[in-house]
Design a protein around this nucleic acid. Structure first.
Length: 220
DNA sequence: TACAAAACGTCAATCGTGAC
DNA sequence: GTCACGATTGACGTTTTGTA
């Protein structure tokens, strides 16, 4: 064999396969697409991803060139840093307080500095007592129904397409005065949590999801 | 050094599965 | 039924290793 064994020098075959799979997923292409672009067969890509072969440098370079990515970039990838980017509706924890239905985007993300929520205010429902944060900003856009927003001494009735944006230091309150559900996509950047801590059950579920996802990625 | 066997990487073809 | 997906099988060529 003219080519040096990549895995023996740099990494385990399984890790190599995991890296290749991650790269492929990042680019959103299938094994066959990647193989076709690289000029190898899908079996080759499949075997590498499964860690069943230790590809030669030549083969690996061919595959990475089709992405494109250098070997250095490939081996500098930190698998542990792979984070979830896309979220299905079912993956957004429900953190409502009984009055307002809230789904938190990226609830399992550690160290997140922003919260994006999909809030549903039932007809006639309000957000409860005035909220006030120590720091940050809040904003949102009404995508269905009507929403009353009181921020400090300011007040407005917002309709579909309207929005709000103000300092979280302002005492604020929301209410749906309409006869139908009001849906708002809102964002909060705050050093203090703007909602109650996640229920223990939700935290546990998120932990399980995170572990299973991490385990599945390692098993891949 | 030369030879044979084993090991390895790669290939085309094929299979099983799930979505539409 | 069709299509795309990932995985598997068997065959082939090349390289490595052991032996005389």
């Amino acid at each position: 064999m003219a080519d040096m064994d990549v895995c023996g020098e740099v990494n385990e075959a399984g890790d190599l396969g995991a890296r290749l799979k991650l790269v492929r997923k990042i680019h959103g292409i299938s094994q066959r697409q990647l193989a076709r672009q690289a000029g190898v067969t899908n079996a080759t890509v499949s075997f590498i991803e499964q860690g069943r072969v230790s590809p030669s440098v030549g083969s690996l370079e061919k595959i990475l060139n089709s992405v494109p990515m250098s070997l250095a970039e490939f081996f500098s990838l930190n698998l542990a840093e792979s984070e979830q980017i896309f979220f299905r509706a079912s993956e957004m924890p429900e953190i409502g307080d009984g009055r307002v239905l809230c789904h938190l985007l990226g609830g399992a993300q550690q160290g997140r500095s922003m919260s994006i929520l999909r809030k549903v205010f039932p007809a006639g429902q309000d957000s409860g007592p005035e909220q006030q944060l120590l720091d940050g900003e809040v904003g949102g856009i009404v995508i269905a129904g009507e929403l009353e927003v009181a921020a400090g001494s300011d007040f407005a009735l917002l309709e579909v397409g309207d929005g709000y944006y103000f300092s979280a230091r302002r005492p604020h309150r929301f209410r749906n005065p309409g006869g139908t559900d009001c849906v708002v996509i809102s964002a909060v950047t705050a050093s203090q949590p703007h909602v109650a801590p996640l229920p223990v059950q939700v935290q546990q579920e998120l932990a399980i999801q995170g572990e299973s996802r991490h385990g599945a990625e390692q098993a891949d």
